[in-house]
Amino acid sequence: MSVFIIAEAGVNHNGSIDIAKEMVDNAKEAGADCIKFQTFIAENLVSKNAEKAEYQKKQTDSNENQLDMLKKLELSFDEFIELNEYCKHKNIEFLSTAFDLDSIDFLMKLDMKRWKIPSGEITNLPYLIKIAKTGKPIILSTGMSTMDEIKETVKVLKENGCGNITLLHCTTEYPTPYKNVNLRAMNTIQDETKMPIGYSDHTKGIEVSIAAVAMGAIVIEKHFTMDKNMEGPDHKASLEPNELKAMVKAIRNIELALGNGVKIPAESEIKNMKITRKSIMASNCINKGEVFTEENLTVKRPGNGISSMMWFEVLGQTAIKNFKEDELIEL
Rank of each mutant, 00 (worst) to 15 (best):
F4L: 08
E8Q: 08
G10D: 13
H13S: 06
S16Y: 02
S16D: 09
D18N: 05
I19A: 07
E22Q: 08
M23Y: 03
D25S: 15
K28H: 07
A30P: 02
C34W: 01
C34H: 07
I35C: 05
K36I: 05
F37I: 14
I41R: 05
E43T: 14
V46K: 04
N49R: 15
N49W: 13
A53S: 13
K57R: 07
K58A: 12
K58H: 11
Q66P: 14
L67A: 15
L67K: 14
M69G: 13
L73W: 05
L75T: 06
E82C: 08
E82K: 10
E82A: 15
E82M: 11
E85N: 15
Y86Q: 11
I92N: 09
F94V: 14
T97V: 07
F99W: 14
F106N: 08
F106D: 09
K109H: 10
K109T: 14
I117G: 00
I117C: 01
S119T: 01
S119M: 04
I122V: 13
T123P: 00
T123W: 01
P126S: 04
K130W: 04
G135Q: 06
P137R: 05
I138K: 01
I139Y: 00
S141L: 03
E149M: 04
I150T: 04
T153H: 01
K155V: 04
E159I: 06
C162D: 01
G163K: 04
I165S: 01
T166M: 01
T166S: 03
L168E: 02
L168S: 00
C170R: 02
T171V: 07
P177E: 07
N180I: 08
N182R: 06
R184M: 12
I189P: 02
I189Y: 00
Q190R: 02
H202F: 00
H202T: 02
H202W: 02
V208N: 06
V208L: 10
S209I: 00
S209F: 00
I210A: 00
A217R: 00
A217V: 05
A217I: 03
F224P: 09
M226S: 10
E231C: 13
E231I: 11
P233Y: 06
S238M: 08
L239Q: 06
N242I: 13
V248I: 10
L256S: 13
L256Y: 09
N260A: 04
V262R: 09
V262T: 10
V262E: 12
V262L: 07
N272T: 11
M273I: 15
M273D: 09
K274L: 15
I275S: 12
R277I: 09
K278E: 15
S279Q: 08
A282F: 03
S283V: 06
S283A: 05
N284T: 15
N287A: 14
E290Y: 04
V291W: 02
T293I: 07
E294R: 14
K300Y: 09
N304M: 12
S307C: 10
M309Q: 07
W311Q: 08
F312D: 13
V314I: 13
L315M: 10
L315W: 01
A319T: 15
F323L: 15
F323D: 13
D326Q: 10
L328V: 13
